[in-house]
Design a protein around this nucleic acid. Structure first.
Length: 804
DNA sequence: AGCACGCCGACT
DNA sequence: GTCGGCGTGCTC
């Protein structure tokens, strides 16, 4: 076994295979599959992943591995296999799959340098180049590019006086912190202490500490806790009583937080019934996918916690996925509170180094639970006992860049390997999952009551067209305003939710709420400012922006969009006494701002929390008794077949923020489409009827979950090129696929031009198409040359969530 | 992705 | 005649 197969860090078609390398004797017992290695590749030095060990190779003249980059493999055997699976299911390169599974800190950083060759002295170089090596041995390649000296240095390289060096470097270093520790035994320390002069009281205190504790301690913590200076410590180090050394520490993003330990809560009858199958699946090492369908406030989290408890008791590990946006302290607190130091948290708010450290805690099995957003699904545990996906309907579980994977699919794949359950939790499951549960593919568990049997909040839907007719042009309906005033008086809190997505991309009549739809697709037309046209992004239908509403002839045609700032200003006008906290991308961009604002609101420092998507979920404050949705339908008319589903989910989630504790909750939903089933049924909080209705529509229009969809997007600088290539691809796919499948296109992308590149797409709807993967690969092969040399781009998304 | 190798135009 | 443009093809 002196040969290693390596996947090199070059994301390209031609290099998407293993390359064999000899393992030098000195690394013979060190190098293992799953490790990163530094290898020579062509004239460069690059990073690679060892996938396999073998004793012979078909390739004759093998190069040697330069050095390993890890002490232990960063990819387990299972993750290496998962990489293969990911490659197939997301049509990506192996290297991209591996990199997606690891923290960004492990991605290689390359440096190209120039060095004087051994035996050459500075005097041998041309005069103008000499200063570069006067004070150092190396000069960075970029530096000579900047100075335009490349040709001159190339001559030197040819002469052999200077050589090019390629270095593979680590991106993030492990954090080392100075620690001090006793050099002597406690007894000897006591003797040394007596020898000190009486006025050296601080030194004596320091020694006292080490008589009691012999473990190394961080210098900074030591001086702070004992209230002594580093000078005092230095003195003891000079006397050879204490020693100092650098010890690796984890960056701790929750350093200044304490978590109150919580105990398992008694479960309700509902909860007991729901958790029982999960626990038995854990106990029997059975892979099963559970869909935990529980209304907002029904206590899903406690079920997660107690399932994890069981997993830990069995000596196994748990992965919990939560949507990025709800990784609020609330969620972290609940997990840390129950499992303390056994939890690693991975989310985008952490620095690269912090993420790396949390990841390493998992890798070293120092924790038992990984809580995080999408990418935490790749947590390098090796004995997984459960995978939980909270708010499983959230679209953020689908990665929108290569590798375009869905965390739910990865979870199921991993759980199959470990023979463990997957729990998908939601108050508003995705149609895909609910349909699977109904078919019996997933095991449906239902929590139909809120804990302590609190009532769901009462919901009132306000027709904003009526408001307009009544002469109210403000963005607050009379009902909402009245209730807002009422809460202010009662000193209860309100959450105002503004749905900002879908900014002015659709056109609506303010008098009757009519929205222009495509006659062929039942999907709203998108407004194109540059030519004043309304366009359908699915079939290509186009028409001019109407001057009068086709329905009621009114000329109140408006483009839609209202910002949080505008709402805040208006609030200040009509309710000047109200204290408002605004939460949107602007106010939460700073690190920790999100948590700060929420904490302020919780502490009652404001009456109204005004925000976008980010406040829709996870909020669980007892004093919130009113939730207002300013415009329920902004998302409804996006050119997306899931827009009804998303609207329903969002409205239901937001409504669930009200009255979760003793006080009863009320919800006001303002809309221009009160009769739309997703608004109406969200108001009634009737998921089941929504499901029925939406499934019917999906069936008619041949969308998921009745059909699978895949999207091919072609882009190029020249419009003609894009159209003709997309045309050919469409025709080709049509010919390769069964008659049951539908190929739509070529059609311009919803965003028809990005960065001066035209974009066209082709949408494939199919039920069963085992050859689709092959056909799509054939497409990529066919256009390979043009992709490499002509700047053509073809992106393929199997099961896209954003059709743009 | 880089980079080397290789084959045609404008310079000393 | 050479220097250098970037088109092609390879990297264990």
């Amino acid at each position: 076994m002196k040969i290693a197969s390596v996947i090199v860090d070059v994301p390209a078609k031609q290099t998407d295979k293993t390359f064999d390398y000899l393992i030098p004797d000195k690394w013979k017992d060190v190098i293992m599959p799953g490790m990163r290695v530094s290898v020579p590749f062509g004239s460069r030095q690059i990073q690679g992943f060892v996938t396999e060990m073998k004793s012979s190779s078909d390739f004759k003249k093998l190069k040697e591995i330069t050095e390993p980059m890890d002490l232990t493999p960063v990819l387990t055997k299972e993750l290496l296999m998962l990489g293969d699976w990911l490659t197939e299911h997301a049509l990506c390169y192996k290297i991209s799959a591996y990199q997606a599974m690891l923290p960004a800190a492990l991605k290689a950083k390359y440096q190209k340098k120039l060095r004087i060759t051994d035996g050459t002295v500075i005097g041998d170089l041309p005069k103008n180049l000499q200063p570069f090596f006067a004070e150092r041995d190396f000069i960075l390649w970029e530096e000579i590019v900047k100075k335009g000296l490349v040709p001159e240095f190339q001559k030197e390289v040819a002469k052999g006086t200077v050589e090019v060096i390629y270095e593979v470097k680590e991106k993030v270093k492990k954090k080392l912190v100075k620690h001090i520790y006793p050099l002597l035994s406690p007894e000897t320390l006591a003797i040394e202490k007596e020898k000190l002069p009486p006025q050296a009281s601080k030194q004596k205190e320091a020694i006292d500490y080490f008589i009691k504790n012999s473990e190394p301690i961080e210098l900074r913590r030591f001086t702070a806790e004992l209230g002594i200076s580093s000078g005092t410590v230095k003195g003891l180090i000079n006397k050879r009583i204490l020693g100092e050394k650098m010890i690796e520490v984890y960056r701790n993003p929750y350093e200044n937080r304490t978590f109150v330990k919580t105990e398992p809560l008694p479960l309700t009858e509902d909860q007991k019934k729901a958790i029982e199958p999960i626990l038995s699946s854990i106990g029997n090492n059975e892979h099963e996918v559970f869909l935990l369908y529980g209304v907002t406030g029904s206590g899903k989290t406690e079920i997660y916690l107690q399932s994890i408890q069981k997993v830990i008791e069995e000596g196994k590990e748990a992965i919990v996925l939560v949507p990025e946006i709800s990784l609020t302290p609330q969620m972290v607190t609940r997990f840390k509170g129950r499992f303390g130091d056994q939890v690693a948290v991975l989310h985008s708010g952490l620095s690269q180094g912090e993420k790396y450290d949390e990841w390493r805690k998992i890798q070293r099995k120092e924790v038992k639970v990984a809580v995080g957003a999408r990418s935490a699904i790749f947590a390098p545990f090796e004995n997984i006992g459960i995978i939980i996906i909270d708010e499983e309907h959230e679209t953020s579980y689908k990665q929108e860049e290569t590798p375009r994977y869905h965390a739910r699919d990865v979870a199921i794949q991993r759980a199959k390997y470990y023979g463990c359950p997957v729990v998908l939790g939601s108050a508003t499951p995705s149609l895909e999952s609910f349909a699977r549960a109904k078919k019996g593919v997933f095991h449906l568990l239902t929590l139909s009551n809120r804990m302590n049997n609190q009532a769901l909040p009462t919901v009132e839907i306000v027709d904003m067209r009526e408001e307009l007719r009544a002469g109210n042009r403000s963005m607050f309906s009379r009902t909402l305003l009245e209730k807002l005033k009422d809460r202010l008086e009662k000193k209860e809190q309100t959450v105002l939710f503004l749905n900002k997505r879908g900014h002015s991309s659709f056109v609506m009549c303010r008098s009757c709420g009519y929205v222009l739809n495509c006659p062929h697709c039942d999907i709203s037309l998108t407004y194109h400012r540059f030519n004043e046209q309304m366009k359908c992004h699915y079939c290509g239908y186009e028409q001019h922006v109407p001057v009068f509403c086709p329905e009621c002839q009114s000329d109140h045609i408006r483009y839609f969009g209202t910002g949080t700032q505008k709402v805040e200003e208006e609030l200040a006008k009509i309710l000047p006494e109200a204290r408002v906290i605004r939460m949107d991308v602007d106010t939460t961009s700073k690190k920790g701002a999100h948590e700060r604002l929420l904490a302020d609101f919780q502490e009652g420092k404001a009456d109204i929390l005004l925000g976008t998507q980010m406040i829709a979920k996870g909020l669980d404050f007892p004093n919130i008794t009113l939730v207002g949705v300013l415009s329920a339908d902004t998302m409804l008319h996006l050119p997306d077949f899931r827009s009804s589903e998303k609207t329903f989910q969002l409205l239901t989630q937001v409504s669930g923020r009200a009255g979760r504790h003793e006080l009863e909750g009320e919800v006001v939903i303002q809309t221009y489409s009160p009769e739309h089933y997703s608004v109406e049924l969200a108001g009634e909080q009737d998921y089941d009827r929504f499901y029925q209705k939406e499934m019917m529509i999906r069936k008619i229009h041949k969308y998921p979950p009745f059909y699978y969809i895949s999207l091919v997007t072609v882009s190029h600088e020249q419009l003609m090129k894009v159209v003709s290539v997309t045309e050919k691809i469409s025709t080709f796919l049509q010919s390769r696929l069964s008659n049951e499948s539908i190929v739509l296109g070529p059609v311009a992308s919803p965003i028809p031009r990005i960065n001066n590149r035209y974009r066209y797409q082709c949408l494939i709807k199919y039920k069963r198409e085992p050859e689709l993967g092959k056909a799509l690969k054939a497409v990529l092969d066919r256009y390979q040359q043009e992709i490499v040399s002509d700047g053509l781009q073809i992106s393929i998304d199997l099961n896209p969530y954003i059709l743009m």
